[in-house]
Design a protein around this nucleic acid. Structure first.
Length: 497
RNA sequence: GCGCGAUUAGUCUAGUGGUCAGGAUCUCGGCCUUCCAAGCCGAUGACCCGGGUUCAAUUCCCGGAUCGCGCACCA
């Protein structure tokens, strides 16, 4: 295929080089909404996760992992059973599907729809003789479209695959309270699969039916939200904020303002929430996504999830899909813990300050990343074509290979042997090295450029005489000569930079 | 889920109711090669799935899957 700086070249690259494949299973024609990662994509994903886990430890978050399947009562309590099931009407003749509540709203504007049961809606259909606008067939029944994937466990017990990891983290609350010795705020994250039965998944890995979430949770008191201990450290950080008001005025460029300013202007209500916005932004920035492609966009009241008091999306501007949400930051209040306390008949009121008699249900602040979306936007934003050369400008530590080692020519045994020795030595030092002898040296450089490998090490004739090798840098293509004995140390140092 | 269009090697594509489905690139093997997709020789590899029409279907028809666009949907 012709190498051009366009989206077709990019889309072919991520398949060709083993980043993302699908829809899976491809040999059976594919199943919409399900994708696989090849070796390069998985290496990239693991590097992102390593980085995120390291940074979460730095911010004081502990990690948990919960089951992906939970019984119905959990989702009743969380509100997902109610909110994730949409009432729909299906035309018996042309099988077109309509959202019942929306259809009523448009066609019967005088009637209050909210809270109506399926039976009541069916009565409305008959009373007003509602029919399919496409073919004129009268509607009959209200059906349910469930955005959660239903399954049955054991002896026909209904259960659901989790539509988010967050809820499963909240269910550990009383354990976490003990585990953290009641030192609030409690900071916990969970990484894992979540499932949503999208009606029509599109846009590749951006809207999958099985996807990875990486969600950070803060359990915190109301007082701590307003007097947050770490706020001072981050209050002068400037973030690209696009608040709801600006959006209403038709603005879509964010304001780069400090969190303190945002708080003073009442764009943000709570210092602890501001801290969450910062963590979301920080974790995005260290992936190497250019600042000008990042914005934090506040949800309007209508856009917010059922549990949210305030919500901002962290979005990345892409060529192929416009602004893409990679992270949602939600003020979930005490909604979840209150509901789970109620449904499980547990007492989740705890003392979080110095007065042991002052008890309340903790507030929850959430930072929820979609890992697959991160992988997509990272690949797309680092993709470059420079004079016919594909260059994936990933940060060195995220690239599938840290270095690649080549003999300058293949048909000289002594050069080949030395190259292999250098490669093995790097591996001994646990540096991710890839060895390649096929084709010309230029071709091998290009192959690595496509994977984002930052440094290529070449063993040439000079190496045989003085034990030096060249390190070729990906973006500049400049080469420096170093001693083989120093190589591992130098690469490790470069990685730290 | 609806409407329109599409689906041919790993990738990008040409083409056909009937001989071996063509090209580019990639990949692999060999030769050559003292640093950025060089050259030469050789090789592997594809008509989305199911049904129908037909002596014969990758090609035409129907259904399904998937993708793209629009509508709807998107906690």
């Amino acid at each position: 295929m012709k190498i051009e700086n366009n989206i077709d070249t990019f889309n072919s690259l991520i398949k060709r080089r083993g980043f993302i494949w699908g829809p899976s299973p491809e040999v059976y024609g594919g199943f919409a909404g399900f994708y696989s990662y090849g070796p390069a994509g998985m290496a990239l994903k693991n590097n992102i996760l390593d980085l995120f886990r390291r940074e979460c430890r730095y911010f004081g978050f502990g990690e948990v992992e919960c089951p992906t399947i939970m019984p119905s009562i959990v989702w009743e309590a969380s509100g997902h059973l109610e909110r994730f099931i949409d009432p729909v009407m299906r035309c018996n003749k042309c099988t077109t599907l309509y959202r019942a509540d929306k259809f009523f709203q448009e066609n019967l504007p005088d009637i209050v729809i909210e809270g109506l049961s399926s039976k009541e809606m069916e009565t409305l259909i008959k009373k007003h003789n509602l029919f399919c606008p496409k073919c004129g067939t009268p509607f009959e029944k209200i059906e349910e479209y469930n955005l959660m994937l239903k399954t049955s466990v054991g002896n026909n017990v209904t259960a659901y695959l989790r539509p988010e990891t967050a809820t499963t983290t909240y269910l550990l609350f009383n354990r976490l309270d003990q585990d953290a010795r009641r030192q609030y705020p409690i900071k916990i994250f969970q990484y894992g699969k979540a499932y949503r039965n999208e009606i029509s998944p599109r846009q590749g890995v951006l809207r999958m039916r099985a996807f990875d979430q990486f969600e950070l949770q803060l359990f915190i008191s109301k007082q701590q939200e307003m007097e947050f201990e770490d706020y001072d450290e981050i209050k002068n950080k400037k973030l690209p904020l696009l608040c709801w008001k600006l959006q209403e005025e038709g603005v879509n460029k964010p304001d780069l303002i400090s969190l303190d300013e945002a708080l003073k202007n009442k764009i943000i209500k709570k210092p602890a929430y501001a801290y969450c916005l910062y963590i979301g932004y920080y974790l995005t920035e260290i992936l190497g996504i250019p600042q000008e492609l990042i914005r934090l966009r506040q949800h309007s009241i209508n856009e917010r999830a059922h549990y949210a008091d305030d919500a901002w999306d962290l979005e990345i501007e892409t060529r192929q899909f416009g602004w893409v949400e990679i992270c949602g930051i939600h003020d979930r209040t005490d909604y979840d813990l209150r509901r789970h306390a109620e449904f499980s008949k547990q007492n989740f009121e705890v003392s979080m300050g110095s007065d042991p008699n002052l008890k309340e249900i903790p507030q929850v602040l959430e930072i929820a990343f979609g890992i697959d979306r991160i992988i997509y936007v990272l690949l797309e934003t680092t993709f470059n074509v420079e004079e016919g050369r594909i260059n994936l400008k990933l940060k060195p530590n995220l690239a599938p290979n840290v270095v690649a080692v080549f003999p300058l020519v293949r048909n000289k045994e002594n050069i080949r042997n030395l190259a292999l020795k250098v490669h093995r030595n790097l591996l001994e030092n646990r540096i991710g090295s890839f060895y390649d002898t096929a084709g010309s040296i230029g071709k091998r450089y290009r192959r690595q450029d496509e994977l984002g490998t930052k440094w290529c090490i070449t063993i040439d004739y000079e190496s045989l005489d003085d034990n030096t090798v060249t390190i070729r840098e990906r973006d500049s293509m400049d080469q420096t000569r170093v001693n083989i004995s120093d190589l591992s140390e130098i690469i490790k140092m470069k990685q730290e930079e």
